[in-house]
């Protein structure tokens, strides 16, 4: 399966957003799409940090529960009533995804013929301490800064 920005973002991440009932593709959907690409160095790097696809889903749900608890709401996400997703929904690029793409493009080395590959997208995702993904990493006890450093090193070494 090709691992360029088009297939990751436009196909896999959009599938994740649709499944999530979201009207927009957000950074968390891109992260899940990256983790699902077992064959990529980015997915391996995530897995080495304990962030398999399932672990990321669990961490995102824990972040959701913790943030609801701030508002005094105690829920188990696993017990929430399910809604059937709309298979025809066409989620658009959300703000957190625009930000991660900008950060990915800006990350050294200067983007060249290699284009916007999975590792560069991962750097873009890890390059913020704000938002649901960063908070999910905290909830999961993952050192985001250390993981980012490893992704930056891999990118500098020529990993796409």
């Amino acid at each position: 399966m090709p691992s360029d920005v088009r297939s990751i973002l436009v196909r896999s991440a959009r599938d994740e957003a649709r499944r999530d009932g979201s009207r927009t593709i957000e950074a968390e959907h891109v992260l899940l799409a990256l983790a699902r690409r077992d064959e990529t160095a980015a997915a391996r790097l995530l897995a080495e940090a304990g962030l398999t696809e399932g672990a990321i889903r669990d961490a995102l749900n824990r972040e959701w529960e913790q943030s609801l608890a701030t508002a005094g709401i105690a829920v188990r996400i696993g017990l929430l009533p399910e809604a059937t997703p709309d298979p025809d929904r066409h989620p658009q690029i959300g703000e957190s995804t625009k930000l991660l793409l900008k950060r990915a493009m800006d990350a050294p080395p200067k983007i060249g013929g290699g284009g916007l590959g999975p590792m560069r997208m991962l750097v873009g995702i890890l390059d913020t301490e704000r938002g649901r993904v960063a908070r999910a990493f905290t909830a999961a006890g993952v050192d985001r800064a250390a993981l980012r450093a490893r992704a930056v090193t891999a990118l500098a070494a020529g990993t796409r």
């Binding site: 972040e63 959701w64 943030s67 609801l68 701030t70 508002a71 709401i73 649901r132 908070r135």
Partner: peptide, 8 residues
């Protein structure tokens, strides 16, 4: 608090 808004 802001994250709670998103969660809600």
């Amino acid at each position: 608090g802001l994250a709670a808004v998103v969660a809600l």
